[in-house]
Design a binder for these strands. Structure first.
Lengths: 346, 346
DNA sequence: GTGAAAGCGCTAACAA
DNA sequence: TTGTTAGCGCTTTCAC
């Protein structure tokens, strides 16, 4: 015979419900989907509802998805969720995705190219409706070309002009511009900017270079591979008088600097915190970013269009004396600062 | 007509591959599943493989799952992944699950009862093969009874004797016993133990009470609802001379205690860190826990059995002078300590 | 209002 | 070795 095992899931189906309620299978379907064009009689509805409850019927999401040609699932592909920023990101995306009636499927690449590709293939095979893709490993052009031709909408969380995909990212320039102006006003002559491996900080900073009298330097630093020590070595060697640095990565501890060298520090931060030792923060409006991201992707899913969407969320420099005010105005709580570990008093 | 939209995913199916390769659909299926009992001729295999590549064919995981009656997906239900411990947990579970050929589907409840139930229902509807369930909200007995009768294996990450489900959890007693002994040896007469809302620390500690001369107290403390301040208030009021506390929750900052009150502190910790200010750590072997968890669940999925499995992973007290040694012996890196935020020097 | 029918894409038992 | 076939559980058009 052909039956996989008579009742693979050992569970109640719409057919059972229909039989028990004395109606046809399609009625049950309609009842569930709340289809308007076929108004069921109140009595029928009630009977179906009753049977569903007594039988503990659960519609099979798999079958629904197969038939409808839509899984209502969005994939999130990222390097890791075990760091506070990653976890916060994933959780916020989950929120926004669910708010729009989709499920979120997370895959973690650990910054590994092979894992990244496998996970992507997996998602595509799963008939996922759209993908939010945080580039976490270097890849070749061929790979991106193949993504561009995919029928599944893919959204990048950074702007890579050379990749023809939708993207929603931060425009760091306004924030950086005002931060550097501030540092200059405070007398800084040399500013070091710490950039990540897969973000566009460096490029965006370069585009600003002409505007300033002070000397701008950058240092690429990546959580997955670089250590604090490497960073501190570089900084202590160079001794710039101003530093632009990603917040929440443990690099901002002024306690780490010797007394004779106390540079001014400005943090890039999604969830700024009142830190008197800092000069200010380049605020990256986190929720707005995620919300827009999911908006764009869901838009592409529900109203497919060949036109690529590229959104840039503006950033803003907030001097230290206005940080607590900013904090109060934020919808989100700084959920992970609570969990911060000290390093035992030194 | 009945077609949802002729080609819902606009994609190549096994039928297309079969036609192009001049074989029947079932052959393609067999080729993919690598079924042994039907050895295809080399030439056929090659032809199929070629067509798959040129057509960029992707097997539809949804259809496979529906037909096979198995999704090869495990669900993880937890309160949140935006804190270092939660994120680390989720990522480790993902690792172990994928190692065994399953996908992981994560749902976050934010410690909300309704969300928890919705997510659970979602997973069940999705025909998920098994669930790892980290209790994150209080629930009534009826709810647990319904889980116990579910045909989908559910595994708890804590031992709740009154709930008849599989569980893999820590046995805190050996670690706590030795820690308290240590504290007693150091002259402590009153020890305060900080317990979470959904764990069994309190019960396990109570079972040890008779063994000690010192006075044992407990305080239930939960990240989702309680604040540092509440804790500090309580501690400063009571001034116990020994404290047992969950690590990595920001409660261990000896800097917070006034100079005239410096209690001895022992941390429960999954990823201990060398902190000179601590007296030692109750080590919870993290990876072993997760690995065992997934082992048990996959076991129940692949060889269903009515017998419930309850595993307890023993813990161990490690005095401060042996912590760095312990650290070196651990397979995992203390990934999140890197990300710790300081609170700006105070 | 209701029900019959035609699949979504894939698998696996069985026949050839 | 290869092909045929009967579904997995659900949705939706179309005729009654």
């Amino acid at each position: 015979m052909t039956k996989p095992s008579s009742k693979p899931f050992g569970r109640v189906t719409a057919k059972d419900v229909a039989e028990r309620a004395g109606v046809s299978r399609s009625l049950v379907s309609m009842y569930l989907s709340g289809n308007k064009n076929a108004w069921l009689s109140e009595s029928t509805k009630q009977r179906i509802d009753e049977v569903i409850k007594t039988l503990h019927y659960r519609p099979n999401t798999l079958a629904q998805a197969l038939r409808r040609g839509k899984t209502n699932t969005i994939g999130l592909l990222m390097g890791g969720i075990a760091d506070p920023v990653g976890g916060m990101f994933a959780e916020a995306v989950m929120d926004e995705v669910e708010k729009r009636g989709y499920r979120l499927f997370i895959a973690v690449t650990r910054f590994d190219r092979k894992r990244e590709r496998d996970a992507l293939a997996n998602m595509l095979n799963y008939q996922i409706d759209g993908i939010i893709y945080t580039l976490s490993a270097d890849s070749d052009d061929d790979f991106f070309r193949s993504l561009e031709n995919s029928s599944c909408p893919i959204l990048l969380t950074e702007n890579h002009p050379e990749i023809n995909l939708d993207s929603v990212c931060f425009d760091l320039r306004p924030g950086m511009r005002d931060a550097i102006r501030h540092l200059e006003a405070q007398g800084c002559r040399r500013v070091l900017c710490l950039t990540g491996y897969f973000d566009r900080t460096q490029e965006q900073l370069a585009s600003l270079a002409g505007e300033f009298a002070c000397k701008l330097e950058t240092y690429r630093w990546n959580l997955a591979t670089n250590t604090h020590e490497e960073f501190m070595e570089r900084v202590l060697l160079d001794r710039p008088d101003g530093i632009l640095v990603q917040g929440n990565q443990g690099l901002d501890k002024t306690a780490w600097f010797p007394p004779d060298y106390q540079p001014r520090i400005v943090e890039f931060n999604m969830l700024p915190r009142p830190a008197p030792a800092l000069d200010g923060v380049i605020h990256l409006p986190f929720r707005r970013w995620i919300g827009k991201m999911v908006d764009v992707l869901v838009g592409q899913i529900e109203r497919p269009s060949a036109r690529r969407v590229r959104v840039e969320i503006p950033t803003e420099f907030v001097p230290q004396n206005r940080v607590s005010e900013l904090l109060r105005s934020l919808p989100e709580k700084n959920s992970f600062s609570t969990y911060a570990t000290s390093n035992g008093g030194r």
